[in-house]
C-alpha cells in the first residue's frame, strides 16, 4: 500500500504539488488526470523516490526502491545509445540481480509485447510505439508489485495502445498496484476503476465516474488558469 500524507513537492521553490493525502490500495488500478503542469509526473517521481518531498511523507509499505517500477516519459532516455533491445529489457532485472550477477533472459518479455525478433536490434531503430513496447517489456522483467506509468500511451499508435492496455489489465489481474498518468479521459473512464484528479492539489480521488464529473473538471481548469496567469 502506498500512503501519502500531506505530500508537498516543489520545483525551484515553486510548489507544484501540495496537500496530497490518501492511499493507493494494494491491487488498485488508478488513473491520474489533470491539466498540463498539474504535478502528475512529479507525483509519480516522488512515489518512485526520484523527487524528494518538500514536506509530508510517502509510506511505501516496506517496499525497496526497485520494487516500485516507473515507466518514464520516453524523453528522459537516450534513445540514440547503441544498446540492443535484449540488453535494454534485461536491465529490468537490475533490482534483483544488481550490477554483477547474470541478468534474466529477455526473450519471453519481448515476445509478450509483440517484439518477437527485435532482441538483436538497437533501440535507436525502433519507432515510438515499438520503443514504448520495449519499456513495457522491461517492466515485465522487473516484475514489481507496484507499477507507475507516466503517460504510457503518449504519441503511440492505436494498435500499440490496445496491446499495452491488455498488459496493464493482466498486471491488474495479477494483483499489482498500478498508477498511470493519462490524458485520454474516455480511456480512463472505460479502463480505470479509480481516478485521482490533480491540479497541483487534489481535486478529487475515488471511483472514476464520480471523479470525472463536469464540476470537478471545471474546478481543475479554473485552478490551472490561476497558476498559468501567475507564471
Amino acid at each position: 500500500m502506498i500512503v501519502l500524507d500531506g505530500l508537498r513537492c516543489a520545483h525551484d521553490g515553486v510548489a507544484v504539488l501540495r496537500g496530497v493525502s490518501g492511499r493507493f490500495m494494494p491491487g488498485s488500478l488508478t488513473a491520474v488526470v489533470g491539466p498540463n503542469g498539474a504535478g502528475k509526473s512529479t507525483l509519480l517521481r516522488a512515489i518512485a523516490g526520484l523527487h524528494p518531498p518538500a514536506a509530508g511523507s510517502i509510506g511505501r509499505g516496506g517496499l525497496r526502491p526497485g520494487q516500485i517500477a516507473l515507466l518514464p516519459q520516453s524523453g528522459s532516455l537516450d534513445r540514440s545509445f547503441p544498446i540492443t533491445c535484449a540488453d535494454a529489457v534485461a536491465l529490468g532485472g537490475w533490482p534483483r540481480r544488481g550490477a554483477f550477477r547474470a541478468l534474466p533472459p529477455a526473450d519471453a518479455a519481448l515476445a509478450a509485447v509483440g517484439l518477437h525478433s527485435a532482441g538483436g536490434r538497437l533501440v535507436g531503430a525502433l519507432s515510438a510505439g515499438q520503443f514504448q513496447r520495449l519499456l513495457f517489456a522491461r517492466l515485465i522483467v522487473q516484475d514489481a508489485p507496484v507499477i507507475l506509468l507516466d503517460e504510457p500511451f503518449n504519441a503511440v499508435d492505436t494498435a500499440t495502445i490496445a496491446d499495452l492496455l491488455a498488459l496493464v489489465r493482466r498486471w491488474h489481474g495479477e494483483g499489482r498496484t498500478i498508477v498511470a498518468v493519462l490524458h485520454d479521459l474516455d480511456l480512463v473512464a472505460h479502463a480505470f476503476p479509480e481516478t485521482l484528479m490533480l491540479a497541483r492539489e487534489p481535486i478529487a480521488w475515488g471511483p472514476t465516474a464520480a471523479v470525472l464529473s463536469a464540476g470537478n473538471r471545471r474546478r481543475a481548469r479554473l485552478a490551472a488558469g490561476q497558476w498559468q496567469a501567475a507564471a
Binding site: 518512485a48 526520484l50 526502491p65 517500477a69 516507473l70 528522459s76 545509445f81 537490475w94
Partner: peptide, 13 residues
C-alpha cells in the same frame, strides 16, 4: 545503464 537511462538507475537505488 547510467548512459542509457539514468532515471531508471536512480529509481532502482
Amino acid at each position: 545503464l547510467e548512459s542509457f537511462d539514468p532515471g531508471f538507475l536512480r529509481a532502482v537505488g
